[in-house]
Design a protein around this nucleic acid. Structure first.
Lengths: 214, 214
DNA sequence: ATAAAATAACTGACTAGTCAGTCATAATTA
DNA sequence: TAATTATGACTGACTAGTCAGTTATTTTAT
């Protein structure tokens, strides 16, 4: 369940076989992201994942037990690197809360919305109810941590007098909401009404900081 | 494409047959919403839709040409009643922009988020990329209209001096974002971290109105 | 070194099952 | 009775997952 940390890869010499294995694992994860993003979980074909990874179908099953497992591992693999970065944002040198919030939101935009990780965000929304495991994983490993950072920043802002103390239920979700919507918009409605992420980001920050201002 | 208006149902006498037909049509649409919401488009079985509507599988095909068509009609049927209401919100007696914005947001929460229409919202996000038709339909019939209302309200607020004039790109999306996120949260993460929609609404309104305040 | 033996990784044809859509037959309504 | 509407068994295309056999790599023996 919580196998996010590699089993301490203490300088294994990494034989040719092991190296190839790791490469293939990565290729499969990447292919899975591409295929699942394209058509969703149910419509995705293992054959397509295999082909896209340059491997036969049987091989996929040497690396993953089932389609479900592949899906879950794909999400986890793509989220893991993010989580350490979030942790770093929590323990931050003391700049103003305003600047910290800006920086954290920038992080969100550049590390998720502007990468194909936003596809994962969408997949979680789409498939979450059918994968309670995964929704819970995502909630406790990504959302909870992100919330903790923002809560800490807000508290700092209240203490320093930068922000007013609105103890609202779901304040954090409201603060981040604009970013989520931008990600979804890009994926679904951009062809009909394009969204400029940079300009959108500015609006988002402006609106939220003003909303929080003391 | 734009068959949103019934072919002017000007007091048809409505024979027994026609009546039953209409009932079955509605039953099928309702069943479709339930089944598609539960498992998504690809995994939904026409057999299940039929059973849930109290009808045999063959009958479904007397009413709809294909699974795709059923899906699209289901979305349209559920959205149509909303659209007239949105139109009414556009031409509103002149209360303050602040109150109007509050009212419109309340409308959003009570007419979408708190009903199973939020399932449709989620389905659009999940399946939109695979149904460009539908995404476009939704965009031009629901989103565009909703945007128009909010834009009008903001303009009124700027004119009256209630709101500052932040001409941000994507301002409307940012304003509504909190509501969308609430809907998704309820559907995906509520089991792990429940959200009280009423309290959340207050936070949302508070944050946004403050963000807009002159 | 080199070859032979052992092992690990890979392949793709195959199975068992699923499901959208059809159609011959039955029931209902006019 | 004739016309319309409904049924559900059936078909055929499709796919997750398997496994007997093949190929590549590593180890051991000479």
């Amino acid at each position: 369940m919580n196998d996010l940390v590699e089993p301490s890869s203490d300088e294994a010499p990494l034989s040719r076989r092991e190296q190839q294995k790791e490469e293939k694992n990565k290729a499969l994860i990447d292919a899975a992201l591409a295929v699942f993003s394209r058509v969703g979980f149910a419509a995705a074909k293992m054959d397509d994942v295999a082909r896209e990874a340059g491997v036969s179908k049987g091989t996929v099953y040497l690396y993953f037990d089932s389609k479900e497992q592949l899906f879950e591992e794909m999400v986890k693999a793509n989220m893991a690197p993010l989580m350490t970065e979030i942790a770093e944002n929590l323990a931050r040198p003391s700049i103003s809360a305003t600047e910290r919030l800006k920086a954290h939101m920038k992080f969100f935009y550049t590390k998720i919305l502007n990468t194909n990780r936003r596809q994962i965000m969408r997949l979680i929304m789409a498939e979450g109810p059918n994968f309670p495991h995964l929704a819970e994983f995502y909630h406790s490993n990504v959302l909870s941590r992100g919330q903790a950072v923002i809560k800490a920043i807000i508290q700092q802002g209240i203490d320093s007098g930068e922000f007013r103390d609105l103890q609202g239920h779901g304040l954090v979700q409201n603060i981040v909401a604009g970013a989520l919507v931008a990600g979804i918009w890009k994926l679904v409605f951009d062809p009909f009404q394009p969204l400029d992420l940079d300009a959108y980001f500015d609006t988002h920050v402006d609106l939220i900081l003003n909303g929080l201002k003391a």
